[in-house]
Design a protein around this nucleic acid. Sequence first.
DNA 1: TTAATATGCAACCATTTGGTTGCATGTCAA
DNA 2: TTGACATGCAACCAAATGGTTGCATATTAA
Lengths: 106, 106
Amino acid sequence: MSMDAVFRALADPTRRQLLDSLHARNGQTLNALCEHMDMTRQAVTKHLAILEGANLVTTMRRGREKEHYLNPVPINEIAERWIGKFERHRLSALSDLKQRLEREEP
Amino acid sequence: MSMDAVFRALADPTRRQLLDSLHARNGQTLNALCEHMDMTRQAVTKHLAILEGANLVTTMRRGREKEHYLNPVPINEIAERWIGKFERHRLSALSDLKQRLEREEP
DNA sequence: TTAATATGCAACCATTTGGTTGCATGTCAA
DNA sequence: TTGACATGCAACCAAATGGTTGCATATTAA
């Protein structure tokens, strides 16, 4: 569960759209997911493989179909372990920046 | 302030490292930032330009030096507008996934 | 003024990325 | 069983990405 894989997976708008789609309706098959996308099935498959590699999506074969489930845990971990760090010092960093900018034109 | 630019800027480990470095010590010059990095100054410049384009870093010329300041606002916006959405349904999505998995082997 | 320092600009290159097409495999239903 | 349907695999391609080198410009300090 490398954090880098999660960040890189989230970098592409198509993949974020896929996560959105699963967020709206969980457990969609590959074909169902493809219907909203303006690209070939194979391209969507590649994106889903990247999301799966980042552990953001879990799949399950049911007969000849493959169901896709959203796994929100990695997103949550990024929020807690990485974003939280910056959020904590948000106000101090901002005031620091403002002070410097005001010092610019005396 | 497109969210896509922020996501793509955060996708690269070098750029996250630069944000970390600024988080540790705000207002560093280009040369100061380069000292921790194992690449040429020009490569670092490009990364900083991308961070600046995503509004994650603000720069200020002071004499012949250029100071770099962290702007945590875009990170915060992503946390609130995008990550929050998934976080809210975190538990329900997880239990949903578990239910499906348990249904698998009756 | 001149030399050293800090940064900017541009061309170039290898690799990665995001997409395609073509075909193969596996499963359901008539 | 056979045809239709859902997915998998692989080769290929253009464009973006991350890095380099070489040189230009601007500012400080001796």
